[in-house]
């Protein structure tokens, strides 16, 4: 626990001592704003909610979260600092969880900086703030899911570009698994039960439910277990690839 916390704090400090944090947050906020106002028609919609904001979150995360996650292990292995870290009295699991938590908290910081949107919508109308809170929670959980997958992929390679591209691809599959694109690949031959299971893995389906204000245990369990499973695989991959 103690080492997990120390590693998490070190990582968070590292984000903010490099330009990474500032560039990431600026781009995230700029893109989130642009998508909400121009593509989402935030003002024209004339509705007092943040639907126009949340609907683009998965697409934003699809590219930005793997960009954050790609360096988690690939960079550490490339620079050799992994050997330094893992020969301290630190367990691999503590390192994996610590680094993941730091990145996840960081996405939380970026997400919470979109609060002017929330202020705006409250100024313009009377939104259901419970639904908005649920939306933020869902969005952060989804970021965690994307991040856990990216972290896991990052442990497979020393090359950050490969880590990024592979993470985006894998996240895309998870994101779309409820939609026709992926469902079509199963519908022809697989039993309906399997098709349903695949559909239930969908980020979009699970996120939609939460952002509409329905915080269902199933959706929380989905993101939670996705994170736990990814990080477990992540630990094994770090162990396996240490010497390579």
């Amino acid at each position: 626990m103690r080492t997990t916390f120390l590693i998490m704090r070190r990582e968070l400090e590292a984000y903010f001592t490099s330009p990474l944090a500032y560039v990431f947050i600026c781009i995230f906020l700029a893109l989130a704003g642009a998508l909400t106002f121009y593509l989402g028609g935030f003002l024209e919609r004339g509705r007092a909610d943040l639907g126009a904001f949340f609907v683009f979150q998965p697409w934003l995360y699809l590219f930005l979260v793997p960009a954050l996650g790609m360096r988690l292990w690939a960079e550490e292995r490339k620079s050799g600092s992994l050997e330094f870290l893992l020969t301290l009295p630190v367990g691999t699991a503590a390192a994996v969880v610590g680094k993941f938590l730091a990145a996840w908290i960081f996405t939380g910081v970026a997400l919470s900086l979109t609060f002017p949107l929330w202020l705006t919508v409250n100024y313009l109308g009377n939104p259901d703030n419970g639904v908005i809170l649920a939306g933020y929670l869902g969005s952060w959980l989804m970021a965690g899911g994307f991040l856990a997958i990216s972290s896991c992929v990052s442990a497979l390679t020393k090359n950050q570009v490969i880590a990024f591209v592979a993470s985006v691809a894998l996240c895309f599959v998870f994101m779309m698994s409820g939609l026709e694109l992926v469902q079509g690949a199963f519908a022809g031959w697989a039993p309906a039960a399997l098709t349903d299971v695949v559909a239930s893995f969908s980020f979009l389906t699970n996120f939609d439910a939460i952002q509409n204000g329905v915080v269902d245990a199933r959706n929380l369990v989905f993101f939670g277990s996705l994170i736990v499973v990814s990080l477990t695989i992540n630990v094994a991959l770090v162990e396996l690839n240490k010497g390579a």
Binding site: R10, A14, T17, S79, G80, S81, E83, F84, T87
Partner: peptide, 11 residues
């Protein structure tokens, strides 16, 4: 001390 004395460069 690992080979090449690796460390976190930004620290």
């Amino acid at each position: 001390l690992p080979e090449g004395a690796p460390a976190y460069g930004e620290m």
